[in-house]
Computed example of a mutant assay.
Amino acid sequence: MKVCVVGTGAIGGFLGVRLAHAGHDISLIARGPHLAAIQSNGLKLIQDGEQLIANNVVATSNISELSAQDVVIMALKAHQIAAIVDKLPHLFGKDTVVVTVQNGIPWWYFQNMGQNLSREYANRTVETVDPGGVLKSAIDAHRILGCIAYPAMVIVEPGVIQHIEGVRFPVGELDGADSARVNRISEMFIEAGFKSPVLPDIRSEIWLKLWGNLSFNPISAVTHATLEAICQYPLTRELAASMMLEAQAVAEKLGASFRVTVERRIEGAEKVGKHKTSMLQDVESGKPLEIDGMLGAVIELAEVTATDVPALKSIYACVCLLNKTIADEQVSIKGWPRQ
């Protein structure tokens, strides 16, 4: 299939390399030194002690150079999508499927809702991640499949990504249907070496992944601690649990359910080890932080559902100020080991 990965960071690159080696026609949208390295040397994946290089790909920063695709994988961070949404129609044919892998609450959360979710919020705009409903209006929800990215990845240098752990990319129709196309995307991912079950309730799985993102990511950003450290230090472990329980209360009012306990979710994060979250990696690189999709949108939904979330609001205030400091001072904030 013709597949375009829009946003070839660590996760997008992981998908792109594996899909290219599975025989698909891959285009990668990237920018800066990362793009230059891919164009010169291909995109290298380091996984399980082995190296895979995808050099039979098209790499560009200009979406308009490409033609209609069978599949568009949206791997940009939530706050980056609006800037390129007007160019996406260049990639759309009649049956093009858009697979979204953003962290956090997606812009389409209240579109095409299944029968097991609260219908009173149908077609509502999630203003925090989609101000004015720009994305909601620009991308037909019937094109969209939800996807959750569980792997931990890092970009070790331009053009080189490293797999830390995990290969799971569950997918699902927004309305929960068991369609031919969602099974086709699942099979494509599985053939590329991923675990990709088809889920009847993609939103509940979004909340399960988001449990970790909304707690561990911002805590790591303000403390510079790894997942293992956050989970093993009693005070931050307790804070993460409080944030997760507040989010669970919001999610359940919206009709979502949780198939594991908070404690089990924390234990799973602890097992990842000394991994820096994506938000901590962005802090160290001086990049804008992916706050709103992970945390701001949850606070918005808490207000919609009249749910009290004091821990979430406190951490949100701290990490927003951190993000402002990084932007205003044009600095990266990196901890260096003592000599």
Rank of each mutant, 00 (worst) to 15 (best):
residue 211 W to N: 10
residue 242 S to R: 07
residue 258 F to K: 05
residue 222 V to N: 02
residue 212 G to N: 13
residue 210 L to G: 07
residue 191 E to I: 01
residue 246 E to S: 00
residue 239 L to Q: 06
residue 236 T to N: 08
residue 226 T to M: 08
residue 243 M to V: 12
residue 231 C to F: 01
residue 203 R to L: 12
residue 191 E to Y: 00
residue 181 R to M: 13
residue 237 R to L: 03
residue 189 F to P: 02
residue 244 M to L: 05
residue 175 D to S: 04
residue 259 R to C: 13
residue 272 V to R: 05
residue 176 G to K: 01
residue 179 S to Q: 13
residue 267 E to A: 15
residue 261 T to Y: 00
residue 227 L to D: 03
residue 250 V to D: 04
residue 202 I to V: 13
residue 226 T to L: 05
residue 250 V to M: 05
residue 199 L to D: 03
residue 203 R to I: 15
residue 174 L to D: 14
residue 271 K to W: 03
residue 178 D to F: 01
residue 248 Q to I: 11
residue 245 L to G: 10
residue 270 E to K: 15
residue 237 R to E: 03
residue 271 K to V: 10
residue 184 R to P: 10
residue 196 S to Q: 02
residue 266 I to Y: 07
residue 206 I to W: 00
residue 273 G to C: 02
residue 225 A to Q: 12
residue 183 N to I: 04
residue 255 G to S: 07
residue 188 M to I: 15
residue 236 T to A: 07
residue 196 S to I: 01
residue 260 V to P: 05
residue 247 A to S: 07
residue 251 A to S: 02
residue 216 F to W: 04
residue 254 L to V: 03
residue 211 W to T: 09
residue 269 A to H: 06
residue 223 T to S: 12
residue 239 L to D: 05
residue 273 G to K: 03
residue 252 E to C: 04
residue 254 L to A: 04
residue 267 E to P: 08
residue 184 R to V: 13
residue 213 N to G: 07
residue 249 A to I: 11
residue 222 V to W: 00
residue 233 Y to F: 14
residue 211 W to C: 11
residue 259 R to Y: 11
residue 214 L to M: 05
residue 264 R to M: 11
residue 254 L to N: 11
residue 190 I to A: 06
residue 248 Q to R: 07
residue 207 W to A: 00
residue 174 L to R: 05
residue 253 K to E: 14
residue 183 N to G: 06
residue 271 K to D: 09
residue 184 R to E: 15
residue 261 T to G: 14
residue 273 G to H: 09
